[in-house]
Amino acid sequence: MRHSGPVPRDLHPFTASLRGLPPLLPGLLACAGAVAAALAVHALVPALPAMTVAVVLGLLAANLPGVSAWTSGPGRAGLGFAGKHLMRSGIVVLGLKVSVVDVLGLGWPALLLITGVVLVSFAGTYGIGRLFRLPPTVSLLIATGFAICGASAIGAMAAVRRIRQQDTVLPVALVTLCGTLAIGILPLLTGPLELGPQLFGAWVGASVHDVGQVVATAQTAGAAALAVAVIVKLTRVLLLAPMVAVAGLHHRLRDDSGGTMPPVVPLFVLGFVAMAALRSTGVLPAGVLEAAALLQDILLGMALFGLGSAVRVRELLRTGTRALLAALAAWLLIAALGLGAAVLMLPGH
């Protein structure tokens, strides 16, 4: 018996997804090309993290005459998809960088100290944002990105608090800007502050936002600085899941709208935890971890290009001056907190 009526869309989700794919392709192809260019620039100039280059390319695409019309028109669907969904996929793969065994190797005093720095950084940055009269959601996202792990943390917090993707654009731009400042400024302070390599590495790991920015900054002081910086930074990254869970629970307790609530911990954050647990078992060979690191760079790079392509510099200068000042103040606060934590962790270095 033939069915003459329309087929319900939800009976054929795969068909529906295929139907929605062609509009995504132009933006996704542009994201892929931008990531290839960003990785090439990073290979030529290791001091420039690929993720930072990807954001800059997105900003250029959004603001150069001719190209800007394409990013807000035919390319918008794929660029928006990358900014949301590929960001979440990249967060899952980020878990494969976190070894709980390595983190525990720092010792409980250091772990408690780093946790304290993250909490005080989060609270202080949120307070600075509100002091500069930024909206609560923007202050929350800036505090999350600065205190934990940059754009990845912003994406996770936005999901659990149901913050619109367009509201993540300014925090991502600010966390990228301040992390890039750290790459250029912190190495210049090693001499005046008389910091040894390990102490400098601990400072970088405790205060710089994105993992790639930490690597770019710490490697200027050698392998010893880089090793300490990465472990301290990944300790902060490990705090992403509990921070997001607490934010999700808080959102549930305060929301009385009666609508459907997001999960306390989004599925992709659970994926991040699962990947971190898998990495901690030590069963994954080095080749798999290297491939995962490349995949994470591709996914997050595409996402950051997509987010950067939504930033209109003219609007940012008009509406984001207070946000920029707040971000710079927060950056100084976290740098001071990170330096104090590094001195306490490694006395005599």
Rank of each mutant, 00 (worst) to 15 (best):
P263Y: 11
M261H: 08
R254W: 05
T190M: 10
D10T: 14
V175E: 07
T168Y: 12
L141E: 08
A34R: 00
M243I: 15
A206F: 08
G258Y: 04
L177G: 03
H12W: 09
V172M: 10
C178A: 10
L86F: 05
H42C: 08
L253A: 15
V53K: 00
A241I: 11
R161V: 15
L96F: 05
L64M: 06
A151Q: 08
A341M: 07
L324R: 02
G271E: 14
T115E: 11
A225H: 05
A327I: 04
L278Y: 05
L234F: 02
G155H: 01
R88V: 02
P65Q: 08
D256P: 00
G282S: 03
P187W: 05
H85W: 07
H3I: 13
P242W: 11
A34S: 08
L170C: 06
L86I: 01
L24C: 09
L119M: 13
L253F: 12
L238K: 07
A82E: 01
L317T: 03
L346C: 06
F200K: 01
R322P: 07
Q296D: 09
V45F: 01
F14N: 01
S152H: 03
G105E: 04
I185D: 01
E315P: 00
C149I: 12
G212F: 01
I298K: 00
V7F: 02
T115D: 12
G127H: 11
A40F: 09
V246S: 11
G201S: 09
D210G: 03
G196L: 04
V103I: 14
G20T: 15
A323M: 08
T71G: 06
A329E: 07
A147L: 13
A173M: 05
L113H: 02
L332I: 14
M51V: 15
G124Q: 11
L249Q: 10
D297K: 08
A202D: 07
